[in-house]
Simulated scan of single mutants.
Amino acid sequence: MQYLTIASAILGSALLASAAPTPADLNARACSVAYPQSIGFPINYSISQDAGAANKRDDAITFDNIPAGSYGCQLEVNFPAGYPITSSGNSQVYFWSGTGASKEQVGTVNFASSPVAATKFVINSFTCAPTMSYTMSIGSETDAGSVAFADTKDAGITMTYNC
């Protein structure tokens, strides 16, 4: 009986080892990246408001290049080390989806870059659609604040998918 148990264990291990992929068979998964709709780069974002939400300046962002059948859309912000971002006051930014009564907050971020390392923020994940649009606004209803930066192919807001 012990012989049968030992033989089964050895045979099972051999079958598992032969089915396991070798390092040469493994490929790193790469995400696809969509960039914001624009006429060209850089896209200069400037989100601001005065105290009491007066003189509010929101900014919109649209991704209209998500292929049908894509999955795992993730709104991200990436900045290389030392990337210039101008901010003052309460510079926390809310991301909104939809308009009017159907508008809902989908994320919050403080745009910042580290002087020594790349910075990545994940705003939120969504079900992919061919067109995905958001509005960015200063998060406070009372404080003055502003944030501005240039969005390029190497820095700024992207939508990753198919990861």
Rank of each mutant, 00 (worst) to 15 (best):
residue 1 M to W: 07
residue 1 M to F: 12
residue 4 L to V: 11
residue 8 S to K: 13
residue 14 A to H: 04
residue 15 L to V: 13
residue 18 S to D: 13
residue 19 A to E: 08
residue 22 T to S: 13
residue 22 T to H: 15
residue 25 D to K: 14
residue 25 D to R: 14
residue 28 A to Q: 09
residue 28 A to K: 13
residue 30 A to C: 10
residue 35 Y to N: 00
residue 37 Q to N: 08
residue 38 S to V: 09
residue 45 Y to Q: 11
residue 46 S to A: 09
residue 47 I to F: 04
residue 50 D to N: 09
residue 50 D to V: 03
residue 51 A to D: 05
residue 52 G to K: 05
residue 57 R to H: 06
residue 58 D to N: 15
residue 63 F to W: 00
residue 64 D to Q: 02
residue 65 N to K: 01
residue 65 N to E: 00
residue 65 N to H: 01
residue 66 I to S: 00
residue 68 A to R: 05
residue 68 A to V: 07
residue 74 Q to R: 14
residue 79 F to E: 05
residue 83 Y to G: 14
residue 84 P to W: 09
residue 85 I to V: 14
residue 85 I to M: 12
residue 86 T to A: 05
residue 87 S to P: 07
residue 90 N to M: 03
residue 91 S to Y: 15
residue 92 Q to K: 00
residue 92 Q to N: 04
residue 93 V to I: 06
residue 94 Y to A: 15
residue 96 W to V: 10
residue 96 W to H: 08
residue 97 S to M: 12
residue 98 G to T: 13
residue 100 G to L: 09
residue 101 A to P: 08
residue 102 S to K: 13
residue 106 V to G: 10
residue 107 G to R: 09
residue 111 F to V: 11
residue 114 S to G: 08
residue 126 F to N: 01
residue 127 T to C: 03
residue 127 T to Q: 15
residue 127 T to G: 09
residue 128 C to S: 05
residue 129 A to L: 11
residue 133 S to H: 08
residue 138 I to K: 14
residue 138 I to L: 14
residue 138 I to H: 12
residue 141 E to C: 10
residue 141 E to A: 14
residue 142 T to S: 15
residue 142 T to C: 04
residue 143 D to A: 13
residue 144 A to Q: 12
residue 147 V to W: 02
residue 150 A to G: 14
residue 150 A to K: 14
residue 151 D to H: 09
residue 151 D to M: 09
residue 153 K to Q: 04
residue 153 K to H: 04
residue 153 K to E: 02
residue 154 D to W: 05
residue 155 A to K: 03
residue 158 T to G: 03
residue 160 T to N: 03
residue 160 T to K: 03
residue 160 T to M: 01
